[in-house]
């Protein structure tokens, strides 16, 4: 059985030699891109299952949890990224498609979605 560990411990578990790429310069462009992916049926289509309090997100579904309190739920943004990349790791039966693992979105697109939803 896989052991659950705290976020801090798991961060210590993983040694990386690179940091996330610098994003400050194009952050608002990245958020806009993330929003477009979130809403687009052909791309992320996140809206089909997740409510989000963005005025442009109409008729969201409720198959998944609403996008609220993201910073509290995911103090480490990378944990959120991992959940979007492959939600089946935590729940093999989930309806949520493994957006990264199945290369439904590119890595850049996933980064953009993370930045967009992390505002809520």
């Amino acid at each position: 059985m896989r052991k659950l560990v705290t976020a801090a411990a798991s961060a210590a578990f993983i040694f990386t030699t690179f940091a996330m790429p610098a994003q400050a310069d194009n952050h608002s462009a990245q958020i806009a891109e993330g929003k477009s992916i979130y809403l687009s049926k052909k791309r992320g289509n996140c809206i089909s299952c997740h409510q989000i309090s963005d005025p442009d997100a109409n008729q969201a579904g409720n198959q998944g949890p609403p996008i609220v309190a993201m910073k509290q739920r995911f103090p480490d943004k990378r944990t959120l990224r991992a959940q979007i990349w492959d939600a089946t790791r935590n729940n093999p039966l989930t309806i949520m498609p493994p957006l990264g693992k199945h290369w439904i979105l590119s890595e850049e697109e996933i980064d953009a979605v993370v930045e967009y939803v992390y505002q809520f």
């Binding site: 560990v5 705290t6 798991s10 578990f13 040694f15 944990t79 991992a82 790791r89 990264g100």
Partner: peptide, 27 residues
Amino acid sequence: ATVVAAPDSYQDAFELNRAMYGKGHTF
């Protein structure tokens, strides 16, 4: 707060690191 389970195989470690950091990284 959602936490990440520790990897239990190379495959899992690879996927978790890819999931958290994207491509072009090492672990």
